[in-house]
Design a binder for these strands. Structure first.
Lengths: 231, 231
DNA sequence: ACACTGTTGTCAACGGTGTTGCGCTGCGAC
DNA sequence: GTCGCAGCGCAACACCGTTGACAACAGTGT
């Protein structure tokens, strides 16, 4: 059950082949292969050259492993954020970084969309967002609510994008074609707005949506701060 | 394979016990029981008093059934939106209605967070949102992008809330307690902002977050429309 | 030097999932 | 009256996460 060789400094003993770190890294390797290769316990055992069930000596269940893997990727995100940015750019960097790793490890990103890891790196992210909204001028309950808005929104969006990558190619193709095909064929009487915009709708890219959603968060914080300042 | 008795008008024959509609309604009954009762094919067969695999005579696979069920709930949402609202209140009503049915049928809401049903009612939702952003003063590409912002954001948020309801009680308890317990115990040196707000953070309710996220979307549309008007 | 203890990996198996192929049945059409 | 065939039940498959019993082995106390 203990994750480290417990007491003494004999941690370098050759006997223990598998370590939590090795398992996490193997998980990331599988996750990086996207939907081509499902992230299953048996597949993980294969990747480690060990019996699949050996994993249960180091993690209580697959969920705990997933949380640990997610926390590792959170670290990647945090390390990619440069120092010395103002609050807006810090949020932008956090958003961009989160999206990047979520697309790199889709299984992880999608599984974490409505979870909390309660692990070291998560506290750093919370601290970062709180620092940003407070630097923007919010305090107390306002800061708390706006932090949750930013945190939940980023998680949801990033999870949404990641989950999309996990769909089988045919599902994804059907999804994409609907914009350019089916939406062009709707009844103009019943759906005048769709008809009017049928040319523009398929042109919208994920990057545009991502950008505008992040800016919406930032401007919500800004607006609230200005309102407080004026009263 | 055909979903209707194919050719002639003999659709009212008594022989066929199962119909797509009956299956969808049974699915909704199970989904409404939340996480207490998993939404599985076998459970669905039990609910229908039929063999589980009989469902495959009416739906290609579980995913297609899920899309149909989701479209049905979309209808519920649309019917709950009153006439004669201005664009802001229409978006608010759509958001509130979506959240309501997603929490009523968590499995459905969570599964649809990053999907597109490509079914009748979905076109009506798209039309509704497009109408709102155009009434706000956006056109062309601006309208298209902002529609996607609203649509994707609502879906993501509602899916996130629904997914949370599906977690086993112990996972949910661990999640909730983290705010009131663990976040109070962090190192004040390393996490000054968390420490400063440790009293306010657990006080934030889902309703507050929901409200502020929806308003952020509305004000983003408003701001963009004002910018266009001024130039 | 020895037995003991606790950790780590292997193996077989369990209960659960979605899904498919085969055979029966009974209705509607001719 | 007979036939065709859609609709359903049944058994089974492949896959999933997880558990319990067992073997190998390291470190420790006597």
């Amino acid at each position: 059950m203990p994750t480290t060789p417990s007491t003494t400094a004999r941690s370098k003993r050759a006997g223990s082949q598998l370590t939590p770190d090795a398992i996490i890294e193997a998980s990331l390797r599988i996750a990086a292969r996207g939907s081509q290769d499902a992230f299953t316990v048996r597949r993980l055992g294969e990747e480690l050259g060990a019996d699949p069930t050996a994993i249960y000596r180091h993690f209580r269940d697959k969920d705990e492993l997933l949380l640990s893997v997610a926390d590792r990727t959170l670290g990647e995100v945090l390390d990619s954020i440069p120092e010395g940015l103002d609050w807006k750019d810090r949020i932008r960097a956090l958003a961009a970084g989160s999206l990047e790793v979520a697309l790199k490890y889709p299984v992880v990103g999608s599984a974490m969309a409505s979870r909390t890891t309660r692990r070291p790196h998560e506290f750093r992210v919370v601290e970062l967002i709180l620092g940003a909204v407070m630097e923007a001028g919010l305090t107390g309950r306002d800061a708390a609510v706006h932090y949750r808005m930013v945190g939940d929104s980023l998680l949801a969006f990033v999870g949404q994008q990641a989950a999309y990558l996990l769909f089988t190619p045919d599902v994804r193709a059907a999804d994409e074609s609907s914009w350019s095909r089916e939406y062009r064929l709707v009844d103009p009487e019943q759906f005048p707005n769709i008809t009017r915009l049928s040319a523009e709708l398929p042109e919208v890219t994920d990057e545009q949506i991502f950008h505008i959603r992040v800016e919406a968060l930032i401007s919500a914080i800004e607006t609230r701060a200005r309102t407080l300042r004026e009263t």
